[in-house]
Simulated assay, not measured.
Amino acid sequence: MMDDNPIADEDAPVLLIVEDDPSFGRALKRSFERRGYHVLSCDRAEAVPDLLTKEAPDFAVVDLKLAGASGLECVKMLHAHDPEMKIVVLTGFASIATAVEAIKLGACHYLAKPSNTDDIEAAFGRTEGDSGVGLTTRATSIKTLEWERIHETLADTGFNVSEAARRLGMHRRTLARKLAKQRVS
């Protein structure tokens, strides 16, 4: 578990960061502290319930792919704890399926990495959808369709890689290799 900010203004908004990349987590923490937030941070979903007994976050930033767990489970837990909490999901593995599930589970926004503090703060402030978002004219690639199908199946199986591989009709190691690769557009 990462450190919590021991000294904080009692009127400062409380932010929880759940991120398993130590350097990215530290950078986010420092950036939000400079903006006046009281920041709590941890690197795994299992540490969240303990933090919630000590603090009541107003905001949360959750990495989608945590070591040993899904960030979606964390979103579900945080939303159940406080439905008013503004939760933003960050991911380097964006897909339509996981974006839809994150919003259904209580996230207010879903951002692809790299995202910075400005992007995240803007996402906290967005409470309504934007019907003016432009539609893309670019056709979806086979790689993107495959990626989305894999993530949809992963979400359906509770992020059980073995079961997802079985449902997709591929070897577990093949699926693990595909998940380890960075997405190519």
Rank of each mutant, 00 (worst) to 15 (best):
M2H: 09
I7C: 08
A8K: 05
A8W: 07
P13E: 12
P13V: 06
E19A: 07
D20I: 03
F24L: 15
F24S: 13
G25I: 00
A27Q: 03
R34N: 11
G36F: 01
Y37A: 09
H38T: 02
V39N: 09
V39I: 14
V39Y: 12
A45R: 14
V48L: 10
L51G: 10
L52T: 07
L52Y: 07
L52E: 06
V61I: 15
V62E: 09
K65I: 14
A67L: 10
C74G: 11
M77D: 02
L78C: 11
L78T: 12
H81D: 09
P83C: 06
P83T: 11
I87N: 04
L90C: 01
T91N: 04
A94R: 12
A94H: 01
S95Q: 01
A102V: 09
K104I: 10
L105R: 15
G106F: 00
A107Q: 01
L111P: 08
K113I: 02
T117N: 05
D118F: 03
G125N: 14
G125V: 01
E128C: 06
D130M: 03
V133D: 05
T137L: 07
S141A: 03
E146A: 02
E146K: 06
E148P: 00
R149S: 04
H151C: 07
E152G: 14
D156G: 05
D156Q: 11
S162R: 14
S162K: 14
A164L: 10
A165P: 12
R167A: 04
L168N: 02
M170W: 08
R172V: 12
R173H: 02
K181I: 04
V184D: 13
